Amino acid sequence: MTVVNNPGSWGHIYSPLEHSAWHGCTPADLIFPFFLFIVGVSVVYAMETKKADPVNHSKMIWAALRRAVILIAISLITQLIFHPGFANLRFPGVLQRIGLVFFVCVILYIKTSQKTRDWITGVLLVGYYLIVCFVPVPGIGYANLDPETNMGAWIDRAVFTTNHLWVHSRTWDPEGLLGTLPAIATGLIGMRAATWLKRTDVDEHVKTSWLFTYGVVATVLGLAWGLIFPINKALWTSSFVLYTGGLAIISLAACYWLIDVNGRKKYTSFFVPFGVNAITAYVLSMYIPYYIGKLKFKESSIYQLLFEPYLSPLNASLAYALLMLLLVWMVVGILYRKKIIIKV
């Protein structure tokens, strides 16, 4: 997302690094659902031992709530730093959705069985489909999937008002309330994959084979469902959940097979610092470009001085984004070498 969110010029972006205009799915659209998927995976790995003792449950839930509140606060404070004033403060957002999904997934992991979570995943996906596609939208009179008139957009305007929605629209929000329900299902799919991956009674080769199988099945189901309920990141449609969840499972299986089973760790060193301090890296990817963009040399920005004169518009824009990625990597790399892990 550091590369996607920080091009040198928003008018010159390679198509795989752009989000879909509405229906459809680009590589950039995979990043957020993959992150929520791995949030679900991490819940299992971090809490399986503590979960076994009911005495810990209350403390675990309070800790999860604290983390969710901190994530939401980081987003709101960052907005106020970049754009002072509460009048147009956006209430939904990426970190807000991560916090809510994490909190709900923790509760479900602690208090329910895997079988129950599987049923909840199905109910969330089917229920969301029925709400969005069949429940009439107040003031509109019919269910629809258009940006400004779908049920999710109506709920967000009613709850937050237009002043506190996505700055590029103010009439709807891609991280709105209703879309958080299927986003929870994305986290639950990650929890299901981790539960399978952590089994000790199954050979690692069998684990990998079945993960690939689950991933392919989910992807195909997502594509099939997409024929009547289009794959759409902004709406976080049920087909989008299955399609991206399937691809995430396949990606996890591939990483598990290459890195854990076959020990191919030579090329992972660049990525580890990002994973160790993932939220820190995400926050830095907002702050570093923001302040770098304010630097001026004889009225010219760094992009205008170092990239624009020497490269094609597309390559100049990409090169600037890669520079932002490198700067973020340098900071999280220093933290990693010093064994500093910033937890929220």
Rank of each mutant, 00 (worst) to 15 (best):
V4E: 05
V4F: 13
N6A: 09
G8W: 06
G11V: 05
H12K: 05
H12Q: 08
P16R: 02
E18T: 09
E18H: 00
C25S: 15
T26N: 14
P27S: 10
D29W: 09
L30I: 06
I31P: 00
F37Q: 06
F37A: 05
Y45H: 12
Y45M: 14
T49L: 11
K51R: 15
K51N: 09
A52P: 03
I61A: 11
A63H: 09
A64G: 14
L65C: 12
R67Q: 12
V69N: 03
V69M: 11
I70A: 08
L71N: 04
I72A: 13
A73Y: 07
S75C: 09
Q79A: 10
H83P: 00
H83N: 12
N88G: 01
R90G: 04
G93Y: 13
V94E: 01
I98A: 13
I98Q: 03
F102H: 14
F102A: 04
L108M: 11
T112F: 13
T116R: 06
I120T: 04
I120S: 04
T121G: 00
L124T: 00
G127W: 00
G127D: 00
Y129D: 05
I131Y: 08
P136A: 01
G139V: 05
A143G: 10
N144F: 05
N144T: 14
L145N: 08
N150T: 04
N150F: 03
R157W: 02
F160N: 09
T162R: 15
T162V: 12
N163F: 07
H164F: 12
S169H: 13
R170V: 11
T171V: 14
D173I: 09
I184W: 03
A185P: 03
A185F: 00
T186Q: 08
T195G: 03
T195I: 00
D201R: 12
D201K: 13
V202G: 04
W210A: 01
G215P: 08
V216Q: 02
V217Q: 10
V220D: 11
W225N: 03
Y243N: 07
T244Y: 12
G245N: 02
L247M: 14
I250T: 02
S251P: 00
L252I: 09
A254K: 01
A254C: 05
D260W: 10
G263M: 05
R264L: 15
K265E: 09
K265G: 02
Y267I: 11
F274V: 06
T280Q: 03
A281M: 08
Y282M: 04
Y282H: 01
L284S: 07
S285T: 05
I288L: 15
P289T: 11
Y290D: 05
K296S: 11
E299N: 12
S301V: 09
L305V: 15
L305P: 04
S317W: 09
A319S: 15
Y320E: 07
L322E: 08
M324A: 07
L326A: 15
W329F: 12
M330T: 14
R337E: 07
R337N: 11
